[in-house]
Write a protein that binds this DNA or RNA. Structure first.
Lengths: 220, 220
DNA sequence: ATGACAATCGCACGTTCGTGGTATATTAAA
DNA sequence: TTTAATATACCACGAACGTGCGATTGTCAT
């Protein structure tokens, strides 16, 4: 292996995965024009990149599109992260919908840029990611916070009493009516009554339904 | 009300809540030196700001510290967002632990800066937030993505088959064994057998247990 | 071709659950 | 003081569940 020769030292290596030929060439050129950076590989699909990853050293950064033929970028992130956890993956795509953003970041992307970003921004983002940051386009950062604020849903209030909430928790934790009764030093019948009331308030009619609702609406 | 007089037009109004006198004066001066911005109020506590909010127009932006006497900044965010949903809240604090960041962003903050940010960064962040962005210090953005990638826990693999996962989903959605059978055009007995196998694989022995596990471990 | 696995189907028995009632004591609000 | 809400307790019956035993079929890799 004479891969990392003198010529390459201090050069950060970037791979590019992008199915659009024109865009691929543009970015490729952009990176190679930047001192200290090198785009050693540019692929059309994740599959190609993965096969090369078996024989070559992984790059510091992968610039990754999402809308790709075959394996999507999202799926790709997971593969790359498994094969080379230290490689930073920077999404560069046109998609700005919540789901794609959410999935990409959950999968382990280190940044998310939209394709309308200026060349400066793109190079700046690569540098930022290399120094431990998490570059995002303005709209994406905004979406991320939006996702966050929806994450903690305003506890839907079904008017459960304290006792009922307490029993719901124990129910979620997997206890039977009898065991809940034992735990709270109550009669089985009392727990039974509480459960009936909980079901009415949550509009369900099974333990399972109550548990599902408890999780979906953060009642736990 | 002659509040928004000619003098103020095109001036964005910023409030500052910060208990450290020195820092408060510094930031106050910084904002007022910036053309197009005005820091009309600087408070030591959220409580003071809230009381003033009852008589004055809310600002476009509130620069908010977290470590405050009395009501914490996190609690403050919720109050402010209730009283004036359109006001952007920009956290400016020394705290960079996951919990504070998570809570602040969940509560509806529009950005999160650390106090070691340069004056330029702070002013730039205010501008960014006003134009719909979500400014974050580099470390914070990184933490945010970190939180994201922990959000979707690596699907613990209990070796459920496709059929079993499918049935688990229906179970979570609240169906009884018989209804699951109907849905999938299977015999009741088949579903029963699948459930038995699911229970073994998930190490549970009730529907409720399976559902709880499905939620907690993201098997859905 | 043998074995491992997945998916399908069957029965029986005991346990737990869901639901229809009823009832009492305490507390807080009207 | 009456009313409403909460927490407590009891019973009975049918429905649903959990589990122990089977079984047949197809697929796929060794």
């Amino acid at each position: 292996m004479i891969k990392n020769s003198d010529l390459e030292k201090e050069n950060f290596n970037v791979w590019l995965i992008e199915d659009n030929l024109h865009f691929r060439r543009t970015i490729n050129g952009l990176i190679n024009q930047t001192p200290g950076m090198k785009c050693s590989n540019a692929f059309e699909t994740c599959e190609e990149a993965i096969s090369v990853l078996e024989t070559e050293f992984p790059p510091q950064v992968i610039l990754l599109d999402i809308g790709l033929p075959g394996m999507t970028g999202i799926e790709g992130i997971e593969k790359f992260k498994m094969l080379s956890p230290s490689t930073h993956i920077l999404i560069l795509t046109i998609y700005d919908d919540n789901e794609k953003v959410f999935d990409a970041l959950c999968a382990g992307a280190s940044g998310y840029l939209l394709k309308d970003s200026s060349p400066d921004k793109i190079i700046g983002a690569i540098e930022e990611v290399l120094s431990g940051g998490a570059p995002m386009s303005m709209q994406i950062a905004h979406k991320v916070l939006e996702i966050f604020s929806n994450l903690k849903p305003k506890k839907n209030d079904y008017g459960l009493t304290d006792r009922e909430s307490e029993i719901l928790k124990l129910m979620v934790s997997g206890l039977t009516k009898q065991l809940i009764a034992d735990q709270l030093f109550l009669s089985f019948h009392t727990v039974n009554t509480h459960l009936k009331n909980i079901y009415v308030k949550l509009h369900v009619n099974t333990k399972s339904g109550a548990i599902t609702k408890a999780f979906k609406e953060n009642l736990i």
